[in-house]
Design a protein around this nucleic acid. Structure first.
Lengths: 213, 213, 213, 213
DNA sequence: CATGAATGAGGATTCATTCAT
DNA sequence: CATGAATGAATCCTCATTCAT
């Protein structure tokens, strides 16, 4: 049942050419946004001809959607695993720092900007990105919190809300100035301070009170 | 405090036609972003001819900047006054709810999306928006917290950080789904729940411990 | 028979407004050519509103034609009178120098450039200019030569040709480099040299041979 | 001696399409001048789409400059070789007639008009044209005269001036009426008359006087 | 008559897309 | 399949001209 086709090695879903195109397109789309990117520049960045773009992708929109799809997938998978040997406080700090680093690196920010910019005109792109990146990492974190509740280390009613609260607390003063280009990426020290404060706040609220049970 | 009109501007800086144009342009820009909006569509939306656009604004960029300027001003001024007769808890809840309502109304979201999308190419637009809307309301809130610290009702080291934390807590599960177009604007009830939780968390951390002195 | 009209002092052929417009238009047209000049800039240069332009002139073309008309007239009249008390040689030198000075002053050159540029599309403009400026001064000079032939000082078959020859000789190395913007206006000394040479050449050819009778 | 192609240029520097474009553009530019020509009309004249123009030329100005460059080159090379077997008088007549035929053919006149019109705004175009066409043919002629002076057939102080004088004499009554569109191209007979007269005048002045030396 | 705001046709230029090779 | 030349629709912007005041 293996395809015997001798001459057909073309627009596979995973040929080298295709990956080349995707790589070039990602660079250009993330730098200039959907409207600002031109197929010509993408072709140049990918090192292929303009025509070849259309061998692998129906049109600019399809190419863009695929890029954003992949971007969300790659950011999604790069999300966090919680190490069982760490205590809650340390886990929160590790997770928080990793989360902020992801959000505040130039490429992550470019992706967020690009997706948000287009969300009004291409809602599915926004949906997918949200599902894969935001909801996914939030989901993992939520499950971690639920385990801790089970284990009796934390006392939380709505773990989904709590997870969202913690990620937001970690962003505090860091994310918006960065995304509005007021400053460069925050230093590891500043990140640590903000994450520490977030952790304190989170535990002040949700750490299981001993002796209450 | 009147806008000093640094932009090129037309026959009359405040004529009906000009306002008409601004209104149409705001609609189109906020819906499609800078690149996605065309001067033709703006003219149609404003009910004027394309040429008239250029009587009042030097070019597309000037028009866009003016819109964003006005948008940031109007969102900035609509920010919050703290009522002295309310206690801290009530004040936080009122502020939090108002803040979320601002962030999660369709127009506010469009503005944020549009500004974030362009921040890389037009940093001043991002800066102004950040200053006027984010920094401004955060500043007011920070000063309120400082007063409460003075008054002994709250115990906070870094009031700026605390202010950011509270606004972020209020966003928790509300803002991102909304801005990525996963849902419509959150209901007042849902807002109240999240803000209540944020307030609890904030006070659990920062309420002055009685007797500690 | 004097017009008793009280309220009518309008778009006369010679009102102050009209002269104002003509003056501004001349400046702009001569500087930028027909296509390069805009009615807006003309209005600004004339210190009137754009609408007023159309009170006095049907359209841009009419205005342009009138300017060129006047320009040709003014250059035509400024042409040369021959002083009877001077001998032929001196007369030729005076005429030649004046002619070159006219041709090689920035305004004269602008006019010639402007007219030549448009001659293909607006032949009448070219015709009028030629008639008024070139043919007219050539005509005067031709008649002067005819008088000299009558008087026996010169021996010329075709005085019209001879007149053209002299004016061309005076241009020699001066006119083209100037009109192609290779140099600024020639110095009076350089003009004198070239005109002297032209005069020598002219007289070597056309001075009546004494004794031949 | 091949043009070094300093301009931006398309896929192929010498493709049929490119030549097609150049041909159409030359027609339109020479007929309407730089401002009067529209890229749309050029595209139509060339039988290509507007977009194709920009595949081969960066912008209207580049296209125009290339046309003028080529035009000046082609007029420049078509300039005159002096045949040693002819005597001076015959050489002058041959040269003069060829020179006038060049100047007074419709295409040459269009080029001159077009270049002169734009010389104020695009001086390099004027310079190149002057160098290639005027200075070049004048230079060749000047050198011819210098040889004759060496050979003792002519007696000239300033051969450059003399060369300019002869070319001007040949224009006499022919060039200006033609360039101002008063008449069509002059007939060969009329050219011969004027050139003969010019030659007589030139030799009357500059032929070496026998026995003087 | 004088104004200048308003117009809309037209200009240069860009770019997603197609197609013959 | 890969190419890149060719396209033409669409974009931003200008400007001659009109017209209500």
């Amino acid at each position: 049942m293996v395809a015997p086709a001798v001459h057909h090695s073309g627009p596979d879903d995973d040929s080298a050419k295709r990956r080349q195109i995707v790589k070039g397109a990602r660079t250009v789309f993330l730098e200039h946004g959907f409207d600002g990117a031109s197929m010509g520049e993408i072709a140049r960045a990918a090192g292929v001809s303009k025509g070849t773009l259309y061998v692998y992708f129906a049109d600019k929109t399809s190419l863009f959607c695929e890029i954003m799809e992949q971007e969300s997938l790659s950011q999604g998978v790069s999300a966090f695993e919680f190490v069982p040997t760490l205590d809650v406080e340390a886990s929160l700090k590790v997770f928080g720092a990793a989360y902020i680093k992801l959000l505040c690196d130039p490429r992550g920010a470019s992706a967020i900007r690009t997706v948000m910019a287009i969300a009004e005109r291409m809602p599915e792109v926004g949906h997918h990105y949200y599902e894969r990146v935001i909801a996914n990492s939030l989901g993992k974190f939520t499950r971690y919190l639920e385990q801790q509740v089970q284990a009796g280390t934390l006392q939380i009613d709505d773990c989904h809300l709590a997870a969202a609260q913690f990620t937001k607390l970690c962003q505090a003063t860091l994310f918006l100035p960065f995304i509005f280009q007021m400053t460069g990426a925050p230093s590891p020290e500043r990140i640590a301070e903000v994450v520490d404060s977030a952790t304190r706040m989170f535990l002040a609220t949700y750490r299981a009170k001993p002796g209450i049970n």
